[in-house]
Simulated scan of single mutants.
Amino acid sequence: MMSGRSTIATRLFWTVVLGGGAAIRYGAPALAATGAACLAILLHRLDRPRRFRALVRRISRRHAATLALRRRQERFLDAYGNTIEDGWLREREYFVERTVLPLVEERGFSDYAEPRFEEMVEIVERVACAHELPDEMETPEDGIAYERYCAELLGEAGWDARPTGASGDQGCDVIAEKAGLRLIVQCKRYGRPVGNAAVQEVAAATLHWSGDMAAVVSNAGFTPAARKLAGTTGVLLLHHDDLSTLAPARRAGRRVLAAGR
């Protein structure tokens, strides 16, 4: 693909060639028009970095709610009071690579992909920080209360949801049914990312409770191991903010769950 520098050189070259030919025939007016055209091309080139940043912001703002939620999920305080955000840093780069870069290249900024990668990441960070989410402190800290809270959020989405209680749940904290589909949920009110043990437990609980689908719901994020296991077992990894819009859907001939408004 032709670089931005070679493109502007080509445009200027042909503008001068064609304008010069016109100036020979039409004189000063054509020469002035040629100069104005060259100036417009140069100004457009100088404005290119601003247009690039504006494009990245527009793309990021389309996903602002999801980015803000993922930022909340993937950052936590460790036992020493340090903010651990490795998961969020990986998420930012993943978003830029998979979502931003293809659109940036499509709009003619492919030459910016590598030298301005960190600038794109910084824009994503600012967009995620600027989007307001519900106050996390509103969620119950007690485990049993958090299960009831999750059941209430599912109820807002039209699910017939009920907590199973503290004993005999076999890894299932909430059972929810809608449109003939049974959802088995394990709830984790954590101060750190949830590991793959929760995924294993809810997958087993789905068999025990004859569920159609399974999900682990948490206020925190999930470890890479949990995400990997969830991908192979079909367990959904959700933030509780997802529950009030969760709806059953069909895809490829089988039932799945999808967030819908």
Rank of each mutant, 00 (worst) to 15 (best):
M2C: 00
T7F: 05
G20D: 04
Y26N: 10
A33N: 07
T34C: 15
L39Y: 03
I41V: 13
H44R: 15
L46W: 02
R48I: 01
P49W: 00
F52L: 04
I59F: 02
S60F: 00
R62T: 08
A68R: 05
R72T: 01
R75K: 05
D78K: 04
W88V: 02
V96M: 07
V96D: 09
T99A: 15
L103I: 07
L103Y: 13
E105P: 15
S110N: 12
D111V: 08
Y112L: 06
A113Y: 05
E122L: 06
V124C: 03
E125C: 07
C129M: 09
C129E: 12
M137N: 14
M137E: 14
E138D: 15
A157P: 09
W159H: 04
A166T: 05
S167W: 15
S167I: 07
G168E: 11
G171Y: 07
I175H: 07
Q186W: 00
Y190G: 03
G191M: 00
V199K: 10
T206M: 15
G211R: 10
D212M: 11
A230T: 03
G234E: 09
G234L: 07
L236I: 00
L237D: 09
H239N: 15
A249W: 10
R254K: 13
R254Y: 04
V256D: 10
V256F: 14
V256N: 05
V256C: 12
L257V: 10
A258N: 05
